[in-house]
Simulated scan of single mutants.
Amino acid sequence: MFERFTKEARSVVIGAQKEAHALHHPRIGTEHLLAAAADRPESPGGATLARLGITAETCREAIRSAARLDEDDAQALRSLGIDLSAVRTRAERAFGPGALDRAPDETDGAGGADRMGGPGGAASRWWPFRAAKTSRPRHLPFTKEAKRALEGSLREALAREERWIGVQHIVLGVLAVGQPSTVKVLRALGTDPEALRAGLLADLRPAA
Score class of each variant (00 low, 15 high):
residue 75 Q to P: 02
residue 156 E to C: 07
residue 119 P to K: 10
residue 69 L to S: 14
residue 111 G to R: 05
residue 17 Q to G: 14
residue 197 R to H: 03
residue 5 F to C: 02
residue 174 V to T: 01
residue 26 P to I: 09
residue 161 E to F: 09
residue 158 L to S: 09
residue 132 A to R: 09
residue 153 S to M: 04
residue 161 E to H: 11
residue 36 A to V: 08
residue 119 P to W: 05
residue 159 A to V: 04
residue 167 V to I: 08
residue 57 E to N: 12
residue 46 G to L: 04
residue 175 L to C: 06
residue 99 A to G: 09
residue 192 D to G: 11
residue 116 M to G: 11
residue 170 I to V: 11
residue 200 L to N: 00
residue 167 V to M: 08
residue 48 T to K: 06
residue 53 G to R: 09
residue 82 I to M: 10
residue 111 G to I: 03
residue 29 G to L: 01
residue 84 L to M: 12
residue 201 L to S: 00
residue 155 R to Q: 13
residue 199 G to C: 08
residue 5 F to M: 13
residue 140 L to Q: 05
residue 97 P to I: 04
residue 67 A to R: 12
residue 158 L to P: 00
residue 121 G to Y: 03
residue 58 T to K: 14
residue 50 A to M: 10
residue 96 G to A: 06
residue 68 R to E: 13
residue 105 D to A: 14
residue 185 V to D: 04
residue 10 R to Q: 12
residue 80 L to S: 09
residue 67 A to D: 08
residue 103 A to F: 13
residue 119 P to M: 07
residue 12 V to K: 03
residue 56 A to Q: 10
residue 38 A to F: 01
residue 116 M to N: 15
residue 103 A to D: 13
residue 14 I to R: 15
residue 141 P to K: 03
residue 205 R to K: 11
residue 42 E to A: 11
residue 95 F to G: 04
residue 72 D to K: 15
residue 59 C to R: 04
residue 94 A to V: 04
residue 178 G to N: 08
residue 147 K to I: 09
residue 133 K to I: 09
residue 133 K to R: 15
residue 11 S to C: 06
residue 89 T to H: 14
residue 196 L to E: 02
residue 192 D to K: 02
residue 178 G to P: 01
residue 33 L to W: 07
residue 197 R to K: 12
residue 145 E to H: 12
residue 61 E to L: 15
residue 98 G to E: 05
residue 15 G to L: 08
residue 166 G to C: 00
residue 86 A to L: 15
residue 9 A to N: 05
residue 127 W to L: 06
residue 197 R to W: 01
residue 154 L to F: 12
residue 59 C to I: 05
residue 151 E to W: 10
